[in-house]
Structure formats: C-alpha cells, structure tokens
Amino acid sequence: MKTLIFCIMLIWPLMLAAQTKPIATIPFVLENNGIYIYCQVNAADSLKFLFDTGANGSVLSEAAATRIKLPRTGTTRNVGSNGTNTVGQSAGNVVRFGSLTKSDVLLAVIPYKGFNFDGVFGTDFMKGYVIEVDYHKKELRFYEPAGYHNDLSAYARCKLRFVDDYPTITSTIVANGRRYTGRFGLDTGADDVLTVAAPFGRKHGLPGRLPRIGTATSQGSDGSTYESAVVLAPEIRFGQKCFYRVPATLPQSTSGVNATEDKAGFWGNGFLKRFNAVWDFDRNYLYLKPNKNLYTEL
C-alpha cells in the first residue's frame, strides 16, 4: 500500500504538467453580448476590438483610423449583413494583442456609426491558434496547436466546416413536428441569439410556421438599417443539446450576408456566450462546455 501511494504522488505532478500553457492570455470585457479586447495598431495603443468569428478579415473604424492617422492604400468590398459597399483599406500594419504580434496586416476601414469600438478582430488573426474563451475568468487564451494537450473531456466536440471562410456547424429548427436542418454560422460579433438567412426561411416557409413575437431593428457594417420579424422557435438542436422557445430574427434581405444561400443562418453571441469554448482552427473543431450564462434569459 505504501508503494501504491508513493506512485500516485509521483504521477500527480506529471498530470498537472500535462496541461498546456498559453502563449498569450488576454482579458476581455463582455458588453451587450460582445467580447472586447484591447490591441495596439502600429504605435497606437489601447484600441478596443470586437472578437468576431463572423468576420474573415480585421477592421479599423473610420473614426479610429483618422485619429491614429492610418495610411490608406486602396479600397476593398465590404459585405455587410444587409448589403455591400466599397470601403478603404490600409496595408502593411503591425497589430499587437497580448504578447502576440502580427506584421504586414491588411485592415479594412469601415465607417461604423453608433458602435462603441475601434476595430474588429477577425478570423485572420485567430487562425493558426487554438483559442480558449473562458467566460468565468473573462479571458482569451491563445495556444500553439501542435503543443495543445488540455483535457477537454467535459466539452462537447463539434466539427467545423468553413463556408466562404465562415465557421459553421449543423443545427436544426424543430417546429410542428418537422425538422429544418442546415449549416449555421457562428458569429461572436453579433449580439443577437439566432438569425435565419432569408433564403432558408423562405424555402421552408418559416415566417408562417413560427409565431411572431416582435420586430428587431438592426444595422449592418455596410451602413444599412433594416427591420426583421422576431419569431419564437419551439425547439433548436445545437450540437448535442436541445434548447426550447428560442427567439430568432427572420430578415427579408435580398443582398448581403443575410441573403446567403449557402448558410441556413447565424448563431450570435447572445447564444454562444452560454458556453466556454475552445476554437481549434488548425483541426477545424469547436469544443463547448455550458457556463454560468447557460440559463440567462434568451
């Protein structure tokens, strides 16, 4: 028995050592369902960025770009939720977040109005890392993928599929005994719970099948403001879990992201904040574990 106890004492420190250390730990604040971190762009520090898995490129607001005298090197096409527009861009920038640095960064410059942040931290900054999103400690932890060995046995694993650089998972809306299944985007940059893409909603007649409970007014990055019906989905199947009486918006967009035909809709951070998450962009997996926000009001 003494020998057995001695062996356990030797093994326990090895188990602790197996936990991977992050290469950067960045505190965040949660405001209106958005995850915000502070970054440095060139010589300008303490710029507030929205952590946005629904953006495949990173952005600086027009106001912030003017304030820090960001040079413009051309234009690019911005696809917003309800339309598209042409915006400025700036090449050759250096962006620092935590202890990490990205060089030769291309930033779009978008004239956001009514938004309280300086920029958008898109998936172009996230790829190449495993990122833990911890809502209890309010931390983003970045890891090198090859050395990541943290215990994820308490997490549900979801396979990610990228559609036009947009991370998606399969989800199902259940109503009146029928199931409507599709690939739904994962958008931590959206503050709502669920948006159903207009073509998917029309194809399955969801405006007539789901009870309407209100109207939402939204503004996209293209500058357009639009109204959408808010309906109540009786049941949603997300990964391995079921949720009931979930509010969802049904936009009638004819252009922009909400008019896409290759995705069924988008989960916003009003829903995703209910899970501590591990984004493994290297292997295309998302790991989810319910957190203290799970039963907050939808």
Results as ranks from 00 to 15, higher is better:
127 K>I: 00
274 R>P: 02
129 Y>V: 01
33 N>R: 09
222 D>L: 05
124 D>R: 03
121 F>T: 02
238 F>L: 02
248 A>N: 05
58 S>A: 06
58 S>C: 03
215 T>E: 14
194 L>D: 07
102 K>A: 14
69 K>L: 04
287 Y>Q: 07
189 G>T: 01
218 S>R: 00
82 N>M: 08
143 Y>E: 01
228 S>F: 09
209 R>E: 11
96 R>G: 01
262 D>H: 15
127 K>F: 00
272 L>G: 01
242 C>T: 15
273 K>Q: 14
214 G>S: 06
236 I>D: 06
123 T>A: 02
138 K>Y: 06
64 A>I: 06
126 M>I: 08
143 Y>I: 00
274 R>L: 02
207 P>M: 07
47 L>V: 07
123 T>I: 08
152 L>S: 04
71 P>F: 10
172 T>Q: 10
291 N>V: 09
97 F>T: 04
176 N>D: 12
37 I>D: 06
60 L>R: 07
134 D>R: 05
117 F>K: 10
81 S>V: 13
155 Y>C: 01
251 P>N: 03
86 T>I: 12
232 L>K: 11
129 Y>S: 02
144 E>C: 01
256 G>Y: 01
228 S>C: 12
25 T>M: 01
10 L>P: 02
23 I>C: 00
24 A>W: 09
213 I>C: 06
182 G>T: 12
46 S>Y: 03
192 D>Y: 05
260 T>L: 04
170 T>H: 07
243 F>Y: 14
81 S>Q: 13
255 S>N: 06
178 R>E: 12
263 K>G: 15
237 R>K: 15
133 V>E: 00
165 D>V: 02
39 C>E: 14
18 A>R: 11
65 A>I: 01
252 Q>G: 14
16 L>G: 10
50 L>Y: 09
193 V>G: 08
190 A>P: 05
210 L>S: 06
134 D>W: 06
286 L>K: 12
62 E>L: 01
1 M>Q: 05
284 N>H: 10
45 D>H: 14
52 D>G: 08
101 T>R: 15
152 L>I: 09
208 G>V: 03
47 L>N: 06
1 M>I: 04
289 K>W: 03
252 Q>M: 13
58 S>W: 01
243 F>L: 12
15 M>P: 08
277 A>V: 00
283 R>D: 13
76 T>W: 07
79 V>N: 12
146 A>Q: 02
93 N>E: 13
28 F>P: 00
242 C>A: 15
292 K>R: 12
121 F>Q: 09
113 K>H: 12
162 F>I: 03
101 T>D: 10
269 N>I: 00
171 S>E: 08
94 V>S: 15
